[in-house]
């Protein structure tokens, strides 16, 4: 419990600095909407084709937005030498991971909470439903668990923001596949029973990625 409290303090620090700079949320939000607009140019079709394309468009958008926002998570820390300060705090490295992860999770969910209605409005596809919200939350959790680890790794390499996407996309491919399949079912109006099996798969990945990242994170931000 104590670890979680400390992690929440770190997450709160990120949220607080975000409310001052509005760097991540504003740019990621605009970026997501731009991606959706570009997809509209790429695929235009009847309502029926839009419903079958919607899950793909949605998850490509969120995956790209995720990379963009996760990259920022550690670049700020690194540029202002805040990472050293964070590491000197009397908390374990695992706590830093949890804190950064929760911060990124909050930013992503915030952006998605705005993008989903905009998407529904622009494409006239009903993406605001309980199954879709559950899929979005679980998938985003999967993105940030592994993304926070790789983001910390990426800022310490020479190429910095180039590194995150090439590592992130192949590793989260299974989550994207599950999310797209589950969203397709949800939009097709299928029952909870068949959707929940995919939700279980995503949740299982979340747990695996969370546990593994939690334990290897300390190796990434050493010294």
């Amino acid at each position: 419990m104590k670890t979680l409290n400390k992690a929440l303090v770190i997450a709160w620090k990120d949220i607080l600095s975000e409310t001052r700079t509005k760097e991540i949320i504003s740019s990621v939000l605009v970026f997501s909407i731009l991606v959706i607009v570009i997809f509209n140019f790429a695929f235009s079709g009847s309502q029926q084709t839009m419903i079958s394309l919607a899950p793909g468009i949605l998850w490509v958008t969120f995956a790209f937005a995720g990379v963009l926002s996760l990259n920022r998570a550690f670049i700020q820390e690194k540029d202002d030498d805040c990472l050293e300060g964070l590491m000197m705090c009397p908390v374990g490295r695992e706590t830093i991971y949890l804190g950064k992860m929760l911060g990124s999770l909050f930013f992503m969910l915030f952006v998605e909470a705005i993008v989903l209605p905009v998407f529904a409005l622009l494409f006239n596809v009903n993406v605001i439903s309980l199954p879709l919200i559950a899929i979005t939350v679980l998938t985003t959790l999967g993105f940030v668990t592994i993304g926070t680890l790789f983001s910390a790794l990426a800022v310490n390499t020479k190429a910095r923001e180039m590194v995150l996407p090439i590592l992130f996309f192949p590793i989260v491919a299974p989550i994207i596949i599950s999310a797209v399949s589950a969203s397709g079912m949800a939009l097709g109006g299928e029952s909870w029973g068949s959707i929940s099996s995919w939700l279980g798969v995503i949740a299982a990945f979340d747990v695996i990625f969370l546990v593994v990242s939690y334990f290897v994170f300390s190796f990434v931000i050493e010294e």
Binding site: N156, F219, V220
Partner: peptide, 9 residues
């Protein structure tokens, strides 16, 4: 260190 992390994940 970094490649070990990637090798494991």
């Amino acid at each position: 260190r970094f490649s070990s992390v990637i090798g494991i994940i």
